[in-house]
Amino acid sequence: MSIWSNLGLVYALLGAAVAVFLAGAGSAIGVGIAGQAAAGVVTEDPSKFAKVLIMQLLPGTQGIYGLLVGFITLSNIGLLGGSPKALDPQTGLLVLAACLPIGIVGLISGKYQGMTSAAAIGIVAKKPDQFGKAMLFPAMVETYAILALLISILAVNAVPLP
Protein backbone atom coordinates (compact mmCIF):
# COMPACT_ATOMS: atom_id res chain seq x y z
CA MET A 1 0.00 0.00 0.00
CA SER A 2 1.85 3.10 -1.23
CA ILE A 3 1.38 6.51 0.38
CA TRP A 4 1.35 8.20 -3.02
CA SER A 5 -1.45 6.03 -4.31
CA ASN A 6 -3.46 6.77 -1.13
CA LEU A 7 -2.70 10.46 -0.79
CA GLY A 8 -6.40 11.29 -0.32
CA LEU A 9 -6.62 9.00 2.68
CA VAL A 10 -3.40 10.45 4.10
CA TYR A 11 -4.83 13.99 3.88
CA ALA A 12 -8.08 12.90 5.52
CA LEU A 13 -6.18 11.16 8.33
CA LEU A 14 -4.04 14.27 8.74
CA GLY A 15 -7.28 16.24 9.18
CA ALA A 16 -8.41 13.95 11.99
CA ALA A 17 -4.97 14.22 13.59
CA VAL A 18 -5.00 18.03 13.35
CA ALA A 19 -8.43 18.21 15.01
CA VAL A 20 -7.41 15.96 17.89
CA PHE A 21 -3.86 17.29 18.28
CA LEU A 22 -4.46 21.05 18.14
CA ALA A 23 -7.71 21.08 20.11
CA GLY A 24 -6.22 18.67 22.66
CA ALA A 25 -3.11 20.82 23.02
CA GLY A 26 -5.30 23.90 23.56
CA SER A 27 -7.20 22.11 26.31
CA ALA A 28 -4.02 20.82 27.92
CA ILE A 29 -2.57 24.36 28.02
CA GLY A 30 -5.84 25.86 29.32
CA VAL A 31 -6.43 23.22 31.97
CA GLY A 32 -2.79 23.59 33.01
CA ILE A 33 -3.05 27.35 33.47
CA ALA A 34 -6.34 27.11 35.37
CA GLY A 35 -4.92 24.22 37.41
CA GLN A 36 -2.04 26.37 38.64
CA ALA A 37 -4.49 29.00 39.82
CA ALA A 38 -6.71 26.34 41.41
CA ALA A 39 -3.73 24.87 43.25
CA GLY A 40 -2.83 28.32 44.57
CA VAL A 41 -6.28 28.84 46.03
CA VAL A 42 -6.57 25.32 47.48
CA THR A 43 -3.16 25.75 49.17
CA GLU A 44 -4.65 28.48 51.31
CA ASP A 45 -8.30 27.40 51.41
CA PRO A 46 -8.99 23.69 50.73
CA SER A 47 -12.74 24.26 51.22
CA LYS A 48 -12.90 25.87 47.74
CA PHE A 49 -11.66 22.69 46.02
CA ALA A 50 -14.96 21.76 44.34
CA LYS A 51 -15.59 25.24 42.96
CA VAL A 52 -12.11 25.76 41.55
CA LEU A 53 -12.08 22.23 40.09
CA ILE A 54 -15.13 23.07 37.97
CA MET A 55 -13.36 26.23 36.79
CA GLN A 56 -10.27 24.22 35.93
CA LEU A 57 -12.27 21.74 33.86
CA LEU A 58 -13.94 24.36 31.66
CA PRO A 59 -11.06 24.61 29.13
CA GLY A 60 -11.07 20.81 28.83
CA THR A 61 -14.00 20.73 26.41
CA GLN A 62 -11.99 21.74 23.34
CA GLY A 63 -10.09 18.48 23.54
CA ILE A 64 -13.40 16.58 23.60
CA TYR A 65 -14.65 18.54 20.57
CA GLY A 66 -11.43 17.71 18.68
CA LEU A 67 -11.84 14.05 19.62
CA LEU A 68 -15.44 14.09 18.37
CA VAL A 69 -14.49 15.58 14.98
CA GLY A 70 -11.56 13.17 14.71
CA PHE A 71 -13.86 10.25 15.50
CA ILE A 72 -16.47 11.29 12.90
CA THR A 73 -13.72 11.77 10.31
CA LEU A 74 -12.22 8.33 10.95
CA SER A 75 -15.67 6.81 10.80
CA ASN A 76 -16.57 8.60 7.52
CA ILE A 77 -13.37 7.56 5.74
CA GLY A 78 -13.92 3.97 6.82
CA LEU A 79 -10.78 3.58 8.91
CA LEU A 80 -12.73 2.63 12.01
CA GLY A 81 -14.55 -0.14 10.21
CA GLY A 82 -11.32 -1.60 8.93
CA SER A 83 -12.11 -0.92 5.25
CA PRO A 84 -10.65 2.49 4.28
CA LYS A 85 -12.28 4.23 1.35
CA ALA A 86 -10.30 5.07 -1.75
CA LEU A 87 -10.17 8.86 -1.59
CA ASP A 88 -8.68 11.04 -4.28
CA PRO A 89 -6.29 13.79 -3.05
CA GLN A 90 -8.89 16.50 -3.66
CA THR A 91 -11.44 14.81 -1.36
CA GLY A 92 -8.73 14.17 1.22
CA LEU A 93 -7.83 17.88 1.24
CA LEU A 94 -11.52 18.77 1.64
CA VAL A 95 -11.69 16.55 4.75
CA LEU A 96 -8.48 18.15 6.09
CA ALA A 97 -9.93 21.64 5.54
CA ALA A 98 -13.14 20.59 7.32
CA CYS A 99 -11.13 19.55 10.37
CA LEU A 100 -9.16 22.81 10.61
CA PRO A 101 -11.79 25.03 12.36
CA ILE A 102 -11.99 22.94 15.54
CA GLY A 103 -8.24 22.33 15.48
CA ILE A 104 -7.19 25.99 15.25
CA VAL A 105 -10.04 27.51 17.27
CA GLY A 106 -9.67 24.73 19.85
CA LEU A 107 -6.00 25.56 20.35
CA ILE A 108 -6.50 29.31 20.71
CA SER A 109 -9.75 29.21 22.69
CA GLY A 110 -8.39 26.50 25.01
CA LYS A 111 -5.47 28.66 26.04
CA TYR A 112 -7.51 31.82 26.49
CA GLN A 113 -10.31 30.00 28.29
CA GLY A 114 -7.66 28.70 30.69
CA MET A 115 -6.42 32.22 31.33
CA THR A 116 -9.96 33.49 31.86
CA SER A 117 -10.64 30.57 34.20
CA ALA A 118 -7.50 31.43 36.18
CA ALA A 119 -8.72 35.02 36.54
CA ALA A 120 -12.20 33.79 37.50
CA ILE A 121 -10.64 31.50 40.12
CA GLY A 122 -9.32 34.74 41.66
CA ILE A 123 -12.93 35.90 42.00
CA VAL A 124 -13.92 32.63 43.68
CA ALA A 125 -10.95 32.95 46.04
CA LYS A 126 -12.08 36.36 47.26
CA LYS A 127 -15.86 36.10 46.83
CA PRO A 128 -17.03 32.47 46.75
CA ASP A 129 -20.67 33.57 46.65
CA GLN A 130 -20.01 35.04 43.18
CA PHE A 131 -19.20 31.61 41.72
CA GLY A 132 -22.05 31.73 39.19
CA LYS A 133 -20.98 35.07 37.75
CA ALA A 134 -17.31 34.08 37.78
CA MET A 135 -18.08 30.96 35.75
CA LEU A 136 -19.77 32.97 33.01
CA PHE A 137 -16.54 34.68 31.93
CA PRO A 138 -14.67 31.54 30.84
CA ALA A 139 -17.96 30.10 29.54
CA MET A 140 -18.15 32.99 27.04
CA VAL A 141 -14.93 31.78 25.39
CA GLU A 142 -16.55 28.37 24.95
CA THR A 143 -19.06 29.88 22.49
CA TYR A 144 -16.43 30.15 19.80
CA ALA A 145 -15.16 26.62 20.28
CA ILE A 146 -18.76 25.39 19.87
CA LEU A 147 -19.17 27.43 16.66
CA ALA A 148 -15.97 25.91 15.27
CA LEU A 149 -17.13 22.43 16.30
CA LEU A 150 -20.43 22.97 14.51
CA ILE A 151 -18.75 24.03 11.28
CA SER A 152 -16.24 21.18 11.41
CA ILE A 153 -18.97 18.55 11.93
CA LEU A 154 -21.15 20.03 9.16
CA ALA A 155 -18.20 20.25 6.78
CA VAL A 156 -16.85 16.75 7.50
CA ASN A 157 -20.29 15.29 6.91
CA ALA A 158 -20.86 17.42 3.81
CA VAL A 159 -17.74 16.29 1.96
CA PRO A 160 -18.89 13.85 -0.75
CA LEU A 161 -17.17 10.52 -0.21
CA PRO A 162 -17.13 7.58 -2.62
Binding site: I33, Q36, A37, A38, A39, G40, V41, T43, E44, D45, K48, M115, A118, I121, G122, A125, K126
Partner: peptide, 18 residues
Protein backbone atom coordinates in the same frame (compact mmCIF):
# COMPACT_ATOMS: atom_id res chain seq x y z
CA UNK B 1 1.74 37.94 28.99
CA UNK B 2 3.39 35.31 31.14
CA UNK B 3 1.56 32.65 33.10
CA UNK B 4 4.47 31.98 35.45
CA UNK B 5 2.80 33.88 38.30
CA UNK B 6 -0.63 32.21 37.95
CA UNK B 7 -0.15 30.00 41.03
CA UNK B 8 1.34 32.82 43.09
CA UNK B 9 -1.38 35.33 42.21
CA UNK B 10 -4.21 32.86 42.91
CA UNK B 11 -2.66 32.06 46.30
CA UNK B 12 -2.33 35.74 47.06
CA UNK B 13 -6.00 36.27 46.12
CA UNK B 14 -6.94 33.65 48.72
CA UNK B 15 -4.70 35.37 51.29
CA UNK B 16 -6.15 38.81 50.55
CA UNK B 17 -9.39 37.66 52.18
CA UNK B 18 -7.58 37.79 55.53
Amino acid sequence: MSEQYTYAVARIRALEVA
